[in-house]
Simulated assay, not measured.
Amino acid sequence: MRADAQRNRELIVAAALEVFTECGADASMDRVARTAGLSVGALYRHFPDRRALLEHIATDALSDLLAFGRAASAEQSATRWEVLVRLVAHCTVLPLAMTKSLLGDIGAHVRLAALAAESDALFEELARGAQQEGDLRGDVAPRAVIGVLNTAVCRPGARVDDPLVTVVLDGLKAR
């Protein structure tokens, strides 16, 4: 891809994140283009429709989550609980609320569904490891940990220091 085309694509994605975060996923594509400082035609040359743009954002978010999680998991000096907490913190800066809503209506987007399954497997592995190390409550199944964490971080406005995330992590921590 040419450098100017790549720059335009990046502008569109950044603008879409801003506009969709502010107005929801039904926000006008015209507004996304205006926010990016580009024509609507330029936007549609990169993304044929809103769904393609949203899927791109969701795929990027889950790919980022997985890359971060794998890198953090590879650190031998960190406990699985520490890695899990760092991964939860990282999740709060990703557009996971938008991604979660897309996954509920995913239909035929195989790559996105595969990334979601991989991220669930990563969280499950970390939860199981944290339980074995004695840092995560043993009475909560790793699959349930994923559900609880999804509720905390896959919502608009999630922040690492907000009360819901803090309470969830405190509740999962072994005493």
Rank of each mutant, 00 (worst) to 15 (best):
T151Y: 12
L164M: 12
C154N: 07
K100N: 11
W81M: 10
D60M: 09
Q132N: 15
R137E: 09
M98F: 04
A74Q: 10
R155L: 02
A130N: 09
V93W: 06
L164C: 04
D170C: 07
A58H: 10
D162T: 05
L115W: 10
R80D: 13
R159H: 13
C91D: 15
P48T: 12
R128C: 04
L65G: 10
P142I: 10
I57L: 13
K173F: 12
A114C: 07
V19Y: 04
A117K: 11
V148L: 14
E118C: 12
L102E: 04
G107E: 05
V153Q: 02
G37D: 02
P95F: 07
L96M: 03
E55Q: 12
C91P: 00
E55A: 06
R70D: 15
W81A: 04
G37R: 00
T99L: 07
G107L: 06
D105R: 14
L126R: 08
A67L: 05
E118T: 12
Y44T: 06
G37M: 00
L103K: 00
R34N: 06
A174E: 15
A116P: 03
S101G: 11
R159E: 12
T99F: 08
A5I: 04
L103N: 02
A116E: 12
L65C: 08
N8Q: 14
A78T: 02
A97L: 02
Q132V: 15
L87R: 07
A97M: 00
V88M: 04
S101P: 00
T35S: 08
L103F: 00
G147R: 05
R2P: 14
